[in-house]
Nucleic acid binder design. Structure first.
Lengths: 267, 267
DNA sequence: GCGACTTTGTGCATTCATTCACAAATGGCT
DNA sequence: AGCCATTTGTGAATGAATGCACAAAGTCGC
């Protein structure tokens, strides 16, 4: 999924550290885990909630006040049952026979995703991609202010990019701690990524988005999401190849059941 | 993330060829599909194979000739059982007691992913991100030559970027068809994405990577993979929030029960 | 050629995710 | 008030992905 997606798009593992809040109830009588942190929302659902949120924001701008699960699902490219289940994880905010109120859903999803408070972002590696990210107008929606930029190149240090001066990567730990960076974005060449990652972690960053094509090694309490163009292309390549193969096979009299080889909701 | 898969072939994962292993087929129901190669390989595994491939390439460059599933798994950030299962989908190329030969795995994974032939890529939207993509040295590994660039801006049309002149988006269908583009990369502002997507499809493109924060509507035979920074950030935000919440909640055993307005929990 | 040791490949149990399908609500109409 | 047409919310069924644990298959030393 990636993964997302998911990636799934991206694909993530490592649910989180074990210990901590896990109250392992050996013999749950009849009552379900009562005070336990209410149902964890499935990882896959969280990713989709972010998508619903964007679609809903667009709806709001168009002045749409209410919609049904069917409509929202179509706009988000998922089926309506899945959408309703996803929404049910965050509570029960619909009206039977009517649908959902856009503004209510927006508020609730924002609350669940923790978007009610802002998360400072640091971008490391101010090359082509880094530039693109630094200038990403107000950064994806608001709520994620770019509060630091880093690069190795001494000529870049001090130069403002998108209104923020670039610092040297050696200062990552110090600057991140000072500015309370909560998310680090790695946009460096692969060779530098792990070192940069280590410095971010040293600076107290617990969440990282990695654009560099390398597998980062991080301590358990740090969460990494990778965005990897090469992988995306190769996945597409795989499907192209498979499609071609199955056609050849088909032509050789092996009429496999089902007509089109393609699946459903490609979104 | 999740892209469509459709393949509904002969379920059972028959080892196929060698040693005619006991056919655990108690009931002789529907005819099996003796497909040559296309063994259904799980979507999630495909994504990881691409990662293994990259790690293996690195290994090869370092002169490593052989390694165990344990070693490769560690380098790829997955557990070894999963890695072995993933590899088993593409065949049986390891040697028990020894491990895998790097070059063999590289070849086999490339074959499965369809990397033995090249796939021409078109990048649409030559802004910051588009520039970054167009210059992405030889594009992710080889095998994905950038064969076309597009933008709306008349001032950009004709200008070479990364050695390739930019064409106008109105020419997408024509140019894509001519140059046999097989993968389209959308790096435009969200408002333009759907129109661009439609043109790509009109040009015969069946695979698309979408960097624009919109849900694309495409016909069934087109596969879209989305790369969405905003979603990634929001997923991280969710986990940060949840982490913080679970700490607070523990201290105050507040009823999660209630109607639906429980403060922190989720649900 | 034999036994000790290593590592693969996979059946099975488990967990996570998707989809179905229907009772429970709700608004509108008569 | 009562009925009808809608649409939600969710148990239960189905399907996909993960991880365990172990037999099978191989190497190495003697």
């Amino acid at each position: 999924m990636a993964a997302a997606r998911g990636q799934r798009g991206g694909e993530r593992d490592v649910p989180a550290a074990p210990g901590a809040t896990e109250v392992t109830m050996p013999i749950p009588p009849v009552a379900e885990t009562p005070m336990q942190r209410a149902r964890a929302i499935p990882e896959a659902a969280v990713a989709r909630l972010a998508v619903y949120l964007r679609v809903l924001s667009g709806m709001a701008e168009q002045g749409i006040g209410t919609l049904s699960s069917e409509e929202l699902a179509a706009a988000a490219g998922v089926n309506s049952a899945k959408l309703r289940k996803d929404l049910s994880y965050i509570g029960s905010y619909g009206t039977r026979g009517v649908g959902y109120e856009v503004s209510v859903l927006v508020d609730q999803i924002e609350r669940i995703l923790g978007l009610t408070r802002s998360h400072s972002v640091a971008v490391v590696g101010i090359g082509n991609l880094g530039h693109a990210l630094a200038n990403y107008g107000g950064f994806p929606s608001r709520g994620f202010p770019v509060a630091a930029l880093f690069d190795v190149d001494p000529d870049l240090v001090g130069v403002p990019v998108g209104g923020m001066p670039v610092s040297h990567i050696d200062d990552i730990p110090k600057v991140c701690a000072e500015r309370e960076i909560s998310i680090g974005v790695i946009a460096t060449p692969p060779a530098a990524a792990q070192a940069v990652c280590d410095r971010l972690v040293a600076g107290g960053v617990h969440s990282i988005v990695n654009f560099a094509p390398v597998v980062l090694q991080v301590p358990d309490h740090v969460e990494v999401r990778k965005v990897d163009l090469a992988v995306e292309l190769q996945i597409l390549s795989f499907h192209v190849a498979r499609r071609a193969d199955s056609m050849n096979v088909n032509s050789s009299a092996l009429a496999v059941n089902g007509s089109s080889v393609d699946g459903l909701g490609v979104r």
